[in-house]
Amino acid sequence: MNAVLHLASVSRVHGEGATEVHALRSVTFRAHPGELVAVMGPSGSGKSTLLTLAGGLDAPTSGSVWIEGTDLATLDNAGRARMRRTSVGYVFQDFNLIPALTAAENVALPRELDGEKGRIARRLALTALEEVGIVDLADRFPDEMSGGQQQRVAIARAIVGERRLILADEPTGALDTDTGEEILRLLRARCDAGAAGVMVTHEARHAAWADRVVFLRDGVVVDETGADEPEILLAGDRA
């Protein structure tokens, strides 16, 4: 079983000379199918940079990022954009839904951008909304929904079309405890169903839903918990 996401000795330096900032220093990181990995660290530790690089929204200064066996550096801009639409789903703290589109239209958008016919895209969107338990809200606009419901729409958008890598940046940050747990339950269920999930959070209680917790400090992985499953111990030599 190959890693869905593999960061190989990735470094990212912002700026030059005296103002140089090392956001990540030679970080190696993998997320496998069926696995939810939490990344924890104080602000400035590099956790957001890690997620940005993992999603191909930024390129490393050195090292390489592989998604489903493809080195992102070998893709041109169009190829990377396509990879983001078809393989990677994002969930943000502030939902990032388009206010002028209904829930179903928001979820269908990445599929439509990818050339899917409107009718098929809508059907896929409804399936995804069903999976997150709010298919009855398909025709509502974001401002007609609670925060928890909006985040469910965002998760549906992240998983529509069977994308296998879910990247979540503080997905529960704007939600109360119970609603936040429902969102974690959904992410967890998606990973249990075979996706690889990477979730950045500063809350230990939320990180605890993950199979593995990676601690970042000053751009370096300083520790890791829960990596004792046999298949993960064998991960050393695979891409």
Partner: peptide, 10 residues
């Protein structure tokens, strides 16, 4: 300690 406590939390 943080890793150990995190493991319990998991």
């Amino acid at each position: 300690q943080r890793s150990a406590t995190m493991a319990s939390l998991q």
